[in-house]
Amino acid sequence: MTGSTFSRAELVDAFAVFEQTVDRAAQTRDWDPWVDQYTDDVVYVEHAAGTMRGREAVRPWIWKTMENFPGSYMTSFPSLWTVYDEATGRVLCELDNPMRDPGDGTIISATNISIVTYAGDGKWMRQEDVYNPLRFVSAAMKWCRKAQELGTLPDEAQAWMQQMGGLK
């Protein structure tokens, strides 16, 4: 895509709303407002899950991902850095995915690069998440081991840990 008609200010403002909506979703665990920011025909490329076409294909995936361990233990998705590309209408950022405190103040997280393409009117027409899935598995396993050591490992995390072959 080239020849975007969106100014830098519009991209910055739209992405700020996007981030606020995602943060509110993380706090309330209501993922619909996040998904509602996408166009009806959004293309969402998620390298581990594949390519989803259409907002209603993305919705159940986000709900399932964020309501099951380890996604259900991620507390926010703040940008560590952001680049606005007016020429393409894209925003590129590195997102942190911190997990809740296992009980001793430890912060465990993994990051991903997200590339979102703006469609105008507060909607996004494409998102691509780029990351190494093994780094997320490693972070979640580290969290599980810390929680196990502290005696705070919940059943769903223990089941995930066992499924991933990490239970001792």
Results as ranks from 00 to 15, higher is better:
Gly3His: 06
Arg8Cys: 00
Glu10Met: 08
Leu11Asp: 04
Asp13His: 12
Val17Ile: 08
Glu19Arg: 14
Val22His: 11
Arg24Ser: 10
Gln27Met: 12
Asp32Gln: 14
Pro33Ser: 08
Pro33Glu: 07
Thr39Tyr: 11
Asp40Thr: 14
Asp41Lys: 11
Gly50Thr: 14
Arg53Met: 13
Glu56Ser: 15
Ala57His: 10
Val58Phe: 13
Arg59Ser: 15
Trp63Glu: 08
Trp63Tyr: 15
Glu67Phe: 06
Asn68Gly: 08
Tyr73Met: 14
Met74Tyr: 04
Ser79Ala: 15
Trp81Asn: 09
Thr82Val: 12
Val83Met: 10
Asp85Lys: 06
Thr88Trp: 00
Leu92Glu: 01
Glu94Leu: 08
Asp96Met: 09
Met99Lys: 03
Arg100Phe: 12
Gly105Lys: 07
Thr106Ile: 06
Ile108Met: 04
Ser109Lys: 09
Ala110Trp: 06
Thr111Val: 03
Asn112Tyr: 01
Asn112Trp: 00
Thr117Glu: 15
Tyr118Cys: 08
Gly120Gln: 08
Asp121Tyr: 15
Lys123Val: 05
Trp124Gly: 06
Met125Pro: 00
Gln127Phe: 10
Asp129Phe: 03
Asp129Thr: 08
Val130Lys: 04
Tyr131Met: 07
Pro133Trp: 04
Arg135Met: 06
Val137Asp: 09
Ser138Val: 02
Ala139Asn: 00
Met141Ile: 04
Lys142Ala: 12
Gln148Gly: 07
Gln148Ala: 10
Glu149Asn: 02
Gly151Gln: 03
Thr152Pro: 01
Leu153Arg: 00
Ala157Arg: 01
Gln158Arg: 09
Ala159His: 00
Ala159Lys: 08
Met161Arg: 00
Gly165Pro: 05
Leu167Glu: 02
